[in-house]
Write a protein that binds this DNA or RNA. Structure first.
Length: 475
RNA sequence: GGCGUGGUGCCCAAGUGGUCUAAGGGAGUGGUCUGCAAAACCAUCAUUCACCGGUUCAAAUCCGGUCCACGCCUCCA
């Protein structure tokens, strides 16, 4: 089954053809480790996780590389603020990042190269650019890439440098450059960098931002590779600069497919600290949401569409995921002999799902396939088993669960091991419920309702069932 | 100023020339069940796709214009 992606390079959906038959190499711009990642960041990482799982679902072997930017203005600035070494400072956020990935069940990439471990590779690449005449050292000792030497500059972001607003980015430091848009490959050491510096053929300093991605992707994926992803904001200048550097140095296409995800907004507004709508994953977990619920929300909107994050959506996620868990609990009870025609439903929804995620990661359509199975199963059980899952044949129930697990290879939000809620309940609550049960049996409705209200006040909801009652704690 | 994206029911959200009187979810409504509830289940829920024109046998989907929202052009995913 063919896979299609919307390629930013020409703004069209294209059939995906990897360099190697069965293997896909892709590079995803990772975090700058100067703080806890926020949900906007995770929108991008979830998108990339969906990409890798969709590729695997379609039978590809994947090699994903995600960089960790552990040296730049922000990491240096903030490590100095707290008087920590750059390494110690970034180490704590790297650790936090990996913990967060686990919370959101984002699959581990094959390689997580850190910029500071690849200074030598970056220097090597800059040397090639110097030799080939694409780079120059300015009077401020920094090394810049000359975009005038790369006529295709702007092809990704569709930016025509002639028409750009002149002046906005010129500050006093930048007069050294031949052209304002030239970007730094190597930044000469300045006092503000403290003890952060490396030796290079151009003197002490540190790498520019863009060069790490070019150097590290080349090392782990080759000079040309299949897919490169990131947030839309990375399109320009970051990815444009990567293309310029890499293609100038290597003389070949850098990346075949560029995929960019749209931003996340919160309650319709851009997420920002001043609006008070800025959330890290950790804050949401503290509010009581689970990783699966947040994953479901972040996964649920197509990656090229702005995702409006709301608490309402998180609550909906809880409701939706619970529906699936409830069905799994029921399916696990199957032990009857009723055989239902399940195979067609399974193969249809499987095909639907696979086609959808292969169609530029159309998650909405894919989820409709999942609900197709869900609703189809309910209908079969209603029609053939009078709604009683216990009378369903165990073998059929297992087939259904296997298919949901198959979907879960991509979604990874469904929980198959939920037990029916057994709440630890105090004896006095238990006895209130008991008394109410007795009152009901005695048809003393007034007393029964009074006891129900009392239980409610104490935080429990009573649900009557055929042969007794259930107590549920109110959240 | 330049470039780009998007406006689909109460909310979220697919569909991008005919199977669309528009998928799916949430909420709502009606019903079954129940002493009443809750839960569960069943049913129902846009002749319409921001607006105005045009192309076409046929448009939510293509073209032009208008309005609105947003992003990038300032190392923020």
């Amino acid at each position: 089954m063919a896979v299609y992606f919307f390629n930013t390079l020409n703004r069209k959906k294209e059939e995906f053809k990897p360099l190697k038959d069965n293997e896909v190499g892709f590079y995803t711009c990772g975090p700058t480790v100067y703080n806890f990642a926020h949900i906007g960041n995770f929108r991008a990482y979830i998108f990339e996780d969906l990409l890798r799982r969709a590729l695997k679902y379609h039978g590809y072997k994947v090699k994903q590389v995600m960089n960790l930017t552990d040296v730049d203005d922000k990491t240096i600035r903030d490590s100095q603020k707290v008087k920590m070494s750059l390494n110690d400072f970034t180490a704590q956020y790297k650790k936090a990042f990996f913990e967060d990935l686990k919370t959101l069940k984002i699959e581990a990439a094959e390689v997580y190269p850190a910029a500071t471990d690849h200074i030598a590779e970056m220097i090597e690449l800059i040397e090639v650019l110097m030799e080939k005449g694409y780079a120059y050292q300015a009077s401020d000792k920094s090394v810049y890439f000359s975009i005038a030497k790369f006529p295709e500059y702007g092809k990704l972001a569709k930016i025509d440098m002639e028409n750009q607003r002149a002046g906005v980015r010129i500050d006093t430091d930048e007069y050294e450059k031949d052209s304002v848009a030239d970007f730094a490959l190597w930044k000469a050491y300045s006092e503000a960098d403290g003890d952060v510096m490396w030796d290079s053929p151009w003197g002490k300093g540190r790498p520019g931002w863009h060069i790490e991605c070019s150097a590290m992707s080349m090392k782990y994926l080759g000079k040309t590779f299949d897919i490169h992803t990131g947030g839309v904001d990375n399109m320009f200048p970051h990815h444009e600069d990567e293309i310029a550097q890499s293609e100038s140095a290597n003389g070949c296409t850098y990346v075949n497919y560029w995929l960019h995800c749209a931003h996340l907004i919160v309650n319709g507004e851009k997420m920002s600290k001043s609006l008070g709508n800025f959330f890290t994953l950790r804050e949401l977990i503290e509010k009581g949401y689970t990783g699966s619920e947040i994953r479901w929300v972040l996964l649920g909107t197509h990656y090229r569409k702005k995702l409006n994050f709301t608490f309402e959506a998180c609550d909906q996620a809880r409701t939706q995921l619970k529906k699936f868990s409830d069905m799994f609990i029921q399916l696990n009870k199957a032990q009857g002999g009723a055989v239902v025609e399940i195979d067609v439903l399974i193969s249809e929804t499987e095909e639907h799902f696979k086609r959808a995620i292969g169609d530029d990661l159309n998650i909405s359509d894919a989820l409709s396939a999942v609900y197709g199975l869900y609703n189809g199963v309910k209908k079969l059980v209603n029609d053939n088993c009078a709604g009683d899952y216990a009378s369903l044949a165990k073998n059929d129930a297992e087939k259904i669960i296997i298919q949901f697990k198959r979907f879960n290879e991509v979604l990874d939000c469904l929980d198959f091991d939920v037990q029916e809620e057994i709440v630890e309940i105090d004896d006095d609550i238990q006895s209130l419920a008991e008394q109410r049960f007795q009152a009901r049996n005695n048809r003393d409705w007034a007393e029964a309702d009074r006891l129900r209200d009392e239980l409610k006040e104490r935080g429990y909801v009573v649900e009557d069932s055929k042969d007794g009652w259930n107590l549920k704690k109110i959240d």
